[in-house]
C-alpha cells in the first residue's frame, strides 16, 4: 500500500465522506445561486475560478465540521486518518463539480 493510500480511510468511509462532500457542494451551490438571483435578478451558474476554488475549500471545511458533528473525527484518527484527509476528501466532489460547471459554462 502506498503511503498516501495508508492515510485514506477504508472504502465505505471514503465513499461516505465523498458523498457528503457532494451534498454539501450542491447545497452551497443552491445557496450561491439563490443569492446571485436575489442580487442581480437572474441566477448565474458560472463562477470566476478564484471564487469557485474558495467555494470548494469552504465545502472542505464544512465537511470537517460535519465529521466532528457526527463524532467521527476521533474514530477516524484511530484509523490513522488525519483532519487534512477529511478536508481533502470533502473538497474533491466540489472541485470536480466546479470544473464540470466551468467547462459546461464555456461551451
Amino acid at each position: 500500500m502506498s503511503p498516501f493510500a495508508a492515510r485514506l480511510p477504508e472504502r465505505s468511509l471514503t465513499v461516505a465522506l465523498l458523498r457528503r462532500g457532494a451534498v454539501l457542494w450542491l447545497l452551497a451551490r443552491l445557496m450561491v445561486g439563490s443569492m446571485s438571483a436575489a442580487v442581480s435578478g437572474h441566477g448565474s451558474v458560472g463562477l470566476l475560478p478564484p471564487t469557485a476554488l474558495a467555494l470548494a475549500l469552504a465545502v472542505g471545511a464544512l465537511g470537517l465540521l460535519d465529521a466532528r458533528r457526527r463524532n467521527e473525527h476521533r474514530f477516524l484518527a484511530n484509523l490513522g486518518v488525519s483532519q487534512i484527509v477529511i478536508v481533502t476528501l470533502s473538497t474533491i466532489p466540489a472541485l470536480l463539480g466546479e470544473l464540470a460547471v466551468g467547462v459546461g459554462g464555456l461551451r
Binding site: 495508508a6 492515510r7 457526527r70 463524532n71 467521527e72 476521533r74 474514530f75 477516524l76 484518527a77 484511530n78 484509523l79 490513522g80 486518518v81 488525519s82 484527509v85
Partner: peptide
C-alpha cells in the same frame, strides 16, 4: 500526531465519545 501514531499501532480511548452515533 494521533493519526501518525495510530498507523504505527497506537489506539486511544479518550474520556469523550469515540463512536459515531
Amino acid at each position: 500526531t494521533w493519526p501518525a501514531l495510530a498507523r504505527q499501532g497506537l489506539y486511544y480511548l479518550p474520556d469523550r465519545e469515540l463512536l459515531s452515533p
